[in-house]
Design a protein around this nucleic acid. Sequence first.
RNA 1: GGCGCCAUCGUCUAGAGGCCCAGGACGCCGCCCUUUCAAGGCGGAGAUCGCGGGUUCGAAUCCCGCUGGCGCUACCA
Length: 488
Amino acid sequence: MTVRTRYAPSPTGGPHIGNIRTALFSWLLARHHGGQFLLRIEDTDQKRYDPAAVDLIIEGLAWLGLDYDEGPGIGGPYAPYVQSERRELYRAAADRLLAQGDAYECWCSSERLDALRAEQTRKKLPPKYDRRCRDEAGRAASRGEAEAEARSCVVRFATPLSGAITLHDAVRSDVTFDLATLDDFVILKSDGYPTYHLAYMVDDEIMRISHVLRGEEWLSSTPRHLLLYGALRFEPPVIAHLPVILGPDGSKLSKRHGATSVFEYRDQGFLPEALFNFLGLVGWSLDDKTEILSREEFVQHFSLERVVRNPAVFNVEKLAWMNGVYIREMPLDQLAERIADRLERDLPANVPRPVDRGLVARITPLIRERIKLLSEVVDYTDFFFTDELRYSVEDLLGKAYRERPADAREALGRATDAVSALDTWSHDGLEAALRALAEERGMKAGDLFSVVRVAVTGRRITPPLFESMEILGQERCLRRLREAAEKL
RNA sequence: GGCGCCAUCGUCUAGAGGCCCAGGACGCCGCCCUUUCAAGGCGGAGAUCGCGGGUUCGAAUCCCGCUGGCGCUACCA
């Protein structure tokens, strides 16, 4: 049997970190077995439909490198891959169930349903549809009312009133459900669109999906699905419910916890490689020590057996650490390219674009072990690109010269002299000259370097000073040193 | 309220009866290196394995109960 999995998001917004983890696991499973991974858009809820979402979902998958074999845009043997374009299929399935007596039309108004629910909740009873339309008489009555108001009907599945059904979940032990707790759920809405329950399985059947991976929030609706598979005579796929991803407070990860869209992480300067690695480890592990795995290693080792059952809190700090690891391990030329892209967007508007790639290439080795996120780049490097340094006198003096600005001024003056006397402008020449100066004047080398640092870069935290000065060049450094002295 | 899932350091996890008075990683704290900041090296604190009962010569690992957290309970997915 060839393994075919899919990512079937509802286009209601950008790709959520939780959904994308499910996509990642599904992709991994398919790739591990040399099978196929498909993308299918489940746009059956017109009220929440967001037309921009489909492109965002596709872009998010591409950014993470989750390529799909069939889906919108690229087609495939079971096209179309968008549910709103497949409505006759669901209608036909519903008709079959109607004909078999496994489903019935329900003409109840939403007002009646709401009132019913309210009443049940008030009495502390489980809210369930009362099956008024399940028998002929009730249905006729409801239908009369509905036609008077020109309302149409929904189709409900007729669940067995008793019995039990058990799910053999691929990551959990068997889960048994009491059918008496179920109600007759809607499979076809009054607007003619199917609900998720009907739509996904009709498509999975047609598209020959072998494994369904989804979030644990679906576990409680699985007994309905099992019933539906049976009534439709579908062979159920392997079903695996993945643990939910939690926010720091232990509730399901959502907007109020901060970033939930993969694009928010991208914009914060996370690398797709790092997010891939990190997400691959939320709910799955290789062994007792491996943290860093390449895409290929994930594909090679991934298995449903090692998916954990317990929910996981999303640990952004660890993701940031991992991002740093990826930044440090990335080949310099590749990193330089990403840094250049990032600078184009983060540098002040008056810095000419495109940024000087040669310059970026020289800077990259100086900052690569100092940054965890691409977003930190600009603060480390802006002084290479602009002469508008904004620092205060306090920054310049630092702790060492706070009480004696005159000494700082003198130090700067002597440093300027020492450095202007240099005939070769190199970092070791600079260091030798300034160390000699400190020695000669009885200054702490660190104190001297610190004033020079702020004078030349405008910042207290910078890449290595002498390398930076070498790149900046003699002329610019001298000018900045003099400007600094004038401030005192 | 009902149904269901889950339960090992703050967090992610390893652990499928003796190898565990519990291993790794992030974070945290020291020290070293050092021109700032990092990175790196070394070391440390941190979990009586939610609680209570069993089973067993022996339990984090099996069983039962409890508690807690979470999820679902829509003509949303």
